[in-house]
């Protein structure tokens, strides 16, 4: 229980610093936000009105408290350009991004874990060096460039997968309940929707995952190598335990936790990296929303995206840490 409490306090502290950062971010905008928001033709009265409406005439600490109070009520402010509540925008934009990141994470795990384990088992063989070369190459490829090349070659030239969008043209009228088209396809019993949405996800998810897979693969491999060197593996071998048993029953469960922590962090990083992919593939999502907001200097919308990605990141880490704690009896014994 002690650990749970500590971990929870750490998350709350992180949340506090996150809100502080986002608050300060919205403060350093060059120029007077009230003048910017009022537009070029506004008179002095209108600017004053907006200033007090936005709370800009109060001291900074008080403004921060107001900001936190509004956040607690789910009020992220209004977009300066669309004049829509940012919260509504984000609720609409988050599911497509999460869908993309989840698929990218599945690709990442499906490559990193088995390849990491196998290349650690066959450390210093030709197979291992080619896995390491793959990881090296993946870590050097710019996400946005890979996305463009794959889109043009596989989507454009070869026409194997759709180029852009979330669904094909014939499903353009489709509207789900959850915003997650894969989930909607399953719930409504529409396998055609499910597979169509999946086909549209493969290229963007793969481009997004490549860089993270390269890192995940390296970390898994290193963790597994040091696990294979431990005494219990030697013991298991002298007891003539079969190699698959050693790999999957002994080494993998013991070596996986450090890489799982990294995968937990990667979830948030991937959500941040959607800014590089979504626009290219013409997918709605918070990445594209953030890019649009930045180019329109809509600072509150950008700050809201920073906040939301930060919160998702904190949650993902919390879940992974608690999961590891529950799964690992050693941690429980310590306290």
């Amino acid at each position: 229980m002690h650990y749970f409490f500590q971990r929870f306090v750490f998350s709350l502290l992180s949340l506090f610093i996150l809100t502080l950062i986002t608050f300060l971010l919205s403060q350093v905008v060059p120029g007077d936000p009230a003048i910017v928001a009022a537009g070029p033709n506004a008179g002095a009265e209108k600017i004053e009105l907006l200033r007090s409406e936005m709370g800009l005439d109060k001291p900074l600490t008080q403004q921060f408290l107001i900001y936190v109070g509004k956040l607690a009520q789910g009020d992220l402010g209004k977009s300066w350009f669309t004049h829509q509540p940012i919260l509504e925008d984000l609720i609409r934009e988050l599911p497509p991004s999460l869908e993309l990141v989840i698929i990218a994470m599945i690709i990442n795990l499906m490559i990193s874990l088995p390849l990491g384990l196998w290349s650690a088992r066959y450390n210093d063989t030709r197979f291992d060096s080619s896995v390491r070369l793959f990881a090296m190459i993946g870590a050097g490829l710019p996400i946005f460039w890979t996305a463009l090349i794959l889109q043009n070659v596989i989507g454009g030239e070869l026409q194997l997968l759709p180029i852009a969008g979330r669904l094909s043209f014939e499903y353009r009228a489709f509207e789900g309940h959850t915003g997650f088209f894969l989930l909607d396809g399953l719930i409504l019993g529409r396998p055609d929707i499910f597979f169509d949405a999946l086909k549209h996800l493969i290229l963007p998810a793969f481009s997004l995952s490549l860089l993270f897979t390269a890192v995940g693969l390296r970390i898994t491999r290193t963790a597994m190598i040091s696990e294979f060197q431990k005494d219990y593996v030697l013991l298991a071998r002298t007891k003539a335990a079969s190699e698959p048993r050693i790999m999957f029953k002994h080494v993998f469960p013991n070596g996986a936790p450090p890489s799982l922590t990294v995968f937990g962090m990667q979830f948030g990083w991937m959500l941040g990296a959607t800014v590089l992919v979504e626009e290219i593939y013409g997918r709605p999502g918070i990445g594209r929303y953030a890019v649009k907001a930045v180019t329109q200097s809509d600072i509150h919308a950008v700050v809201a995206v920073v906040l939301v990605v930060g919160v998702v990141f904190l949650l993902a880490n919390l879940v992974v840490d608690l999961l590891l704690y529950i799964l690992n009896p050693r941690g429980r014994m310590d306290k």
Binding site: S14, L18, I21, T22, L25, S26, V28, V29, P30, M265, G268, W269, L271, G272, A273, V275, L276, A290, A293, V294, T295, S297, I299, V302, V303, V305, V306, V309, G310, F313, L314, N317
Partner: peptide, 17 residues
């Protein structure tokens, strides 16, 4: 921990592109 790209995006937005 915070995603570096998104944090940088926030700073860039505040400072101007």
């Amino acid at each position: 921990g915070f995603p570096p790209l998104i944090l940088a995006l926030g700073f860039a937005a505040a400072l101007g592109a």
